[in-house]
Amino acid sequence: MDPVLLLDVLLLILAVLAAVAAMLQRDLLGSVMLMGIYSLLMAVIWANLFAMDVSFTEASVGAGAATVLLLMALTRIGTRERSGGDHSLPALVLVVLTGVVLLYGTSELPRFGDPQAPAQLHIAPRYLAQDIGKVSDSATPQDSPHGEGDFGHHVPNTVTAVLASYRGYDTMFETAVIFSAGMCLLLLLRPIPRRSPETVTIDESGSTSHQKSESVVLRTIGGMLIPYILVFGFYVQMHGEIGPGGGFQAGVLVAAAFILHSLLFGRAATDRWLPRWLVDLAMSLGVLLYAGTGVACMAMGGHFLDYSALDRVHPAEAEALGMTLVEAGVGLTVASVVLTIVRKVQGGTR
């Protein structure tokens, strides 16, 4: 048996168990932790299925950011789930029906790893060869050196190539989705009246959410970690074209560094390093950088997001440059929105 499939089956069984356990658990804190475990298992499964970038994102966004967000929300919502009165036969029938229809619908899909599957044959090979070529009606010179491919070997990570160039428009809106979420939270969660920054605020569950940590050990060790997280974040940002990584993962990492800083040294200290107005501005600037790159391409006579228009003489280099720019936009928006969302959900002044 194919070792990939064997490992896949074993991990999936574990993941399903974690999922069921998370739903059965009555203590919401336990549920959230089990969901975190489920997410990490999924990250391993994605890696096993050759989806390195998805794995990285699941680990940072799914297991990391989402879990932190849930935990912080629980401190305001409460962790107790009332038991009883929530089993419903109609729901069960509906769910089983949906499941049966889906089992039927997937029964004729190609088997696991089938190299003859339509998904492997139609457009994927051209992505992997990175040899599609721009539409001929544009002013692109036809001398795009053949064998060099669309990006002149500058972007070996095809996931980044598809994400930032072939389907760059999707990714722009993905960034816009994050921005929208950030705006929705600013809109929905009312600011709690401002108090002096060093006042200890204790919320219902008794945890102190936004003053500095008392433990010297935590502050020293944690403080040492922060520069490394930041450097790693920038590395992931810049490395996206070559290996797994890119703006999304990097943005979450950078945000994590600042969140750690504010947990250790208090929010006021973080605000001194990173003023709030800058965070607010960065949310917009990221999307703006992305869309602005596209508009620049239009102004240079290409289609929207046609990076090769930025430098007609060296189209492959221009592609790589455009992708770096839009990835920077993604990173900027993700980092600032994650920071904003976490602070908003945490509550307190903002």
């Binding site: 070529g133 721009k134 539409v135 072939y166 389907r167 428009y169 289609h303 929207f304 046609d306």
Partner: peptide
């Protein structure tokens, strides 16, 4: 029809 990024359909959006 507008090919985003200059990539022809169905490869681009």
């Amino acid at each position: 029809s507008y090919p985003l990024g200059g990539w022809p359909a169905p490869f681009g959006i």
